[in-house]
Design a protein around this nucleic acid. Structure first.
Lengths: 234, 234
DNA sequence: ACACTAATCCAAGGATGATTGGAGGATGAC
DNA sequence: GTCATCCTCCAATCATCCTTGGATTAGTGT
């Protein structure tokens, strides 16, 4: 078989994709871009990177065609180059979560669920019991039974949100509580399975005596499921 | 926000997965393991690696919990640690194929389709026209209309195959042609979208005047689709 | 033309990863 | 027990990657 060379070349092609993903900061950039386009400066700030370093990482991602760019005057907006990249990223998250117990622990610690000491088998009064399934939310929202609350920053809401959702970023939530009907049940959501905003929002709402729960996962998984998405400002 | 440290740790967890995938040889090992368990020696041989090197790569994969081991006497069998790993790998292939034109070119060259010179837009008499969809194959096989032919090595057939399929590895095909009914239509399959065996098999069958086509993709995608799989020797 | 901003390019260093050869563990045959 | 086999572990070399600072390019406004 003279196909060793061709075979190797093929796997090296695959590896250009995986190598582009093989860095924590680049994964963080992809996580951000999964919520909508951003400039280099915004990305650097959000991912705690120097401008030069962020630009470098973005060049690597661009080289692997995982992101694309759009020029607007003096700025350059980066965005994910297709839903399959988001799906690949979600797949990575899923594998990490299922295979690495350290990921579960890190996730609990970051989200503020469980105790984070490691024996995370099943906290009885866990926030998991307050998760709402996607199809269920869609049905109940259409029936007007619940208020859907998007607690991500306004920009991300504008780039794509659940139809009918109200946009109140977590930062503004405590001051704008009165915009939410007193008696309604509230379902909050944010970026995805590893986003802390909705967890914080539900904790805050409960503390204020509201009935609130959380959509399972978040926008990333909602979109990948092919469920309806609307874009445009609030 | 004091969550920068926690956030970074979370993404570093994700990165342990992607770093384990960030190497052409390791991807090749995963490709092999997606067809069933193998020993270190078999893997080294198949992937054109030294034993030491292969073992090292496998340790990396094991460290990320992407593969698991089983000891049998003096040998150690490696296998993928769950279908989600196979799904992740398939997702990588998909992204590479959709985003990198070089991957398309490398694929055509390896599979022996198209001309491989780069302008691979659409070869008229392309092998694509002879692809059979998965559900269609299942229905026609159950109705006895087609003979399903597995042209992978016997070991891989034993580890999992399409119910009712006949096992004739490509190497043995030309000598064992008489085992296939003269008049039947034959549908060949092998490992996956990047496996050359079924392509070669169909070319050989056509040359011998048989009616033959190829299942779209292969065993990997069949399994991930949740379609029925049987295991055990022929 | 000039100043200003956003982003990329380049070079240097320190860190991390891949391969190889040789030593060492575990298991099975005798 | 000894030997052979299969695999892992260790150490050294070489290549690759990440970060940082300074210089450069592209675009905007005056």
């Amino acid at each position: 078989m003279g196909d060793r060379r061709l075979k190797t070349e093929l796997f090296e092609q695959f590896a250009t994709v995986t190598k582009a993903l093989a860095n924590a900061k680049r994964l963080e950039l992809i996580d951000l871009l999964a919520q909508g386009e951003r400039t280099v400066e915004q990305l650097a700030e959000a991912a705690d990177l120097g401008i030069t370093s962020a630009s470098g990482h973005l060049q690597v991602l661009k080289g692997a065609r995982l992101v694309s760019t759009r020029r607007a005057g003096t700025r350059i907006f980066y965005s994910l180059d297709g839903e399959d990249v988001a799906a690949l990223y979600a797949s990575v998250q899923q594998v990490a979560r299922a295979h690495l117990s350290a990921t579960q622990a890190a996730r609990s610690a970051y989200l503020g669920t469980g105790d984070g000491t490691g024996h995370s088998d099943a906290s009885p009064a866990d926030a998991a019991s307050e998760e709402v399934a996607r199809e269920e939310l869609l049905a109940r929202a259409r029936a007007g039974e619940v208020v859907v609350l998007d607690v991500r920053p306004h920009v991300e809401f504008g780039a794509g949100h659940i139809p009918g959702a109200v946009s109140i970023p977590l930062e503004e939530l405590s001051e704008r509580l009165d915009e939410l009907p007193d008696d309604a049940e509230i379902v909050a959501y944010c970026r995805g399975a590893y986003c802390v905003l909705a967890y914080d929002a539900v904790r805050l709402l409960h503390a204020r005596g509201r009935r609130a729960s959380r959509l399972v996962d978040g926008m990333l998984e909602w979109r990948l499921q092919g469920l309806p998405v609307r874009s445009g400002a609030a």
